[in-house]
């Protein structure tokens, strides 16, 4: 009974603070994306000639697989279908990784980033499918000046 109450409380904390953090993060990413919108980003392998050597740029983020999401996902997985919570979570992480890549490109003075690739991997305790842990999203590409 006490265990269930603690779980319930943790889930409520997760819903409240997690939701608020997500809204703030999305707004923050919109602002940063706006400031970096002049950089051309492609995943094309052929890059234009610029006369200067290209620079390899990366951006990465490790996100938590929080208990609330895992709890809800377990219910959804019983019936099958879309797990929209994970969709939003991964989308946020991927956008954050790309923004960090663009910030690195901007810091290096680049105007274009080509051949952008994403890498995903589980880290921490979740590597063995236990609860908790996180996932890393890495974006990398070739920046040209």
């Amino acid at each position: 009974m006490l265990g269930a109450a603690i779980t319930g409380l943790l889930l409520l904390i997760g819903v409240f603070f997690g939701g608020r953090a997500q809204r703030q993060h999305l707004a923050d990413m919109d602002r940063r994306a706006e400031a970096l919108s002049d950089i051309i980003v492609t995943n094309l392998k052929t890059i234009p000639e610029s006369g200067q050597p290209p620079i390899l740029v990366t951006g990465s983020v490790v996100i938590a697989f929080d208990y609330f999401r895992q709890f809800v996902a377990k219910f959804v997985m019983f019936f099958g279908g879309r797990i929209t919570m994970y969709e939003t979570m991964l989308d946020r992480a991927r956008r954050e990784a790309l923004l960090r890549l663009l910030e690195a490109a901007r810091a290096a003075g680049a105007r274009e980033v080509h051949n952008v690739r994403y890498e995903f991997s589980r880290v921490g305790s979740a590597a063995e499918q236990g609860p908790g842990g996180g996932a890393e999203l890495l974006a990398y590409g070739t920046a040209i000046l």
Partner: peptide, 26 residues
């Protein structure tokens, strides 16, 4: 870092300690 990551697993979001660790390693 793992302790902090455990706390973050309640609310979700970024695990900054892990991001830095993997960035250094890379």
């Amino acid at each position: 870092r793992d302790l902090m990551a455990g706390l973050k697993n309640i609310v979700g979001g970024e695990l900054k300690g892990y991001t830095e660790l993997l960035e250094d390693a890379r």
